[in-house]
């Protein structure tokens, strides 16, 4: 999964030469061999490096605060969204739904790498949601729909249908 994400990210960043990746360990952690130094290990580490290589540092946040927020959600992605069990899914969706209530992107009003990698990571969960659940977690699906339509992001993933208007009556 991580390797396809990295190759989609390379295309999004319009990097000319695709990298060759390998994996290590049971969790298939991605590894990038570099020509001029030690290998880079880990999805976040490699993704941040690709962003810098493409000279798109703004995707990592444009202030110390937003950089910290981006790093936090990148960590959330590889800790919470890489190893969840069924019981965790509702907590993840509930928390993200509340977090995204007043936000356009993961880091406030700025599109960043956190949106791209959170989108790739949460895609299997959203794909499995029933329409009624998609309504229940409206802020998550609104953000998700926004990111899947963001130019150049979706790549290897199938689009997920998200209804913009409620079809089930509100619970309030």
């Amino acid at each position: 999964m991580a390797l396809r994400e990295l190759s989609s990210l390379e295309k999004f960043l319009e990097l000319k030469k695709p990298n060759k990746y390998s994996t290590q360990g049971d969790k298939k952690v991605p590894v990038l061999q570099s020509s001029d130094g030690p290998p880079l290990v880990g999805l976040i580490t490699i993704a941040c490096n690709l962003v810098k290589e493409a000279k798109r540092s703004e995707l990592l946040g444009d202030s110390a605060e937003s950089r910290a927020v981006v790093q936090q959600w990148l960590e959330y992605r590889v800790t919470k969204l890489n190893n969840y069990n069924k019981d965790d899914i509702r907590t993840i969706l509930k928390d993200l739904n509340l977090y995204l209530q007043d936000k356009t992107f993961m880091a406030e009003n700025q599109f960043t790498l956190a949106d791209i990698l959170m989108y790739y990571g949460i895609h299997p969960i959203i794909l499995d949601l029933a329409m009624q659940e998609k309504e229940q977690f409206m802020n998550v699906t609104r953000w998700f729909d926004h990111i899947q339509h963001y130019p150049g992001v979706r790549r290897h993933l199938p689009p997920v249908v998200v209804l913009k208007n409620r079809i089930y009556p509100s619970r309030h």
């Binding site: 941040c48 490096n49 960590e75």
Partner: peptide
């Protein structure tokens, strides 16, 4: 921690990031 170091003028170099990712995931 990264934020506290950065506001103190020390940005996280790439190799640092790799250890932090390893710490969190492994």
């Amino acid at each position: 921690c990264q934020f506290l170091f950065e506001v103190n003028g020390q940005e996280t170099p790439p190799l640092c990031n790799q250890w932090l990712e390893w710490e969190a995931t492994e």
